[in-house]
């Protein structure tokens, strides 16, 4: 445990160290380069704002109206028939749509069932092994102005589905006993 948390806390400072030492070694104006590159970030964040706002408002309407909950309870029996534990159904649907909502649900599941329960472990694995597909597509395509996104969404959502199935199967196998 301490090993992994040590790696995580050393990682970023080490990257900074390596970058700055190699830049100084090559006699590059590192500070000026940093400022020059960083300037782009402000522009980028501002151009992302409308994309994020639009997507987040639409998702919020769907959730706030209760339609999403209704949809989840509608398809819940179907997923349970395939062996998905009922508690995990909402999380597996929310995960690709909203990162903050999914994180909230994972925390809630861990809180109610305990981190070392089957549901707790499954929620943890699911949260860690998939990402918010809709957010990634919004941000990456939005930032560079891609209008027609081809098969990106389909591929992303199918991969999410497989990730969720894989999480259930693996957690069942590993922690069954």
């Amino acid at each position: 445990m301490s090993f992994i948390s040590t790696i995580s806390s050393w990682m970023i400072p080490l990257i900074i160290l390596i970058v700055l030492i190699s830049a100084s070694w090559k006699r590059l104006p590192s500070y000026e380069l940093f400022v020059e590159g960083g300037k782009e970030g402000i522009q980028m964040a501002m151009s992302l704002l409308p994309f994020l706002l639009g997507m987040m408002v639409s998702i919020a309407i769907l959730r706030g109206s209760g339609a999403l909950d209704a949809f989840i309870s509608m398809i819940s029996p179907l997923l349970q028939a395939f062996g998905v534990p009922p508690d995990i159904v909402p999380l597996s649907i929310i995960r690709p749509i909203s990162g903050t909502a999914a994180l909230g649900m994972t925390t809630e599941l861990i809180d109610t069932h305990g981190p070392d329960s089957f549901i707790g472990r499954l929620a943890s694995t699911m949260q860690g092994s998939t990402d918010t597909t809709l957010y990634i597509i919004t941000v990456y395509f939005g930032a560079v102005g891609i209008r027609r996104m081809g098969d990106a969404l389909k591929v992303g959502l199918l991969a999410d589905l497989i990730g969720i199935i894989a999480s259930i199967v693996i957690v069942t196998i590993v922690f069954a006993g």
Partner: peptide, 14 residues
Amino acid sequence: LVFWLGLMKVAEEA
């Protein structure tokens, strides 16, 4: 964004 893009610019040039 500002932090990482800044650092990446240095890393790229190096």
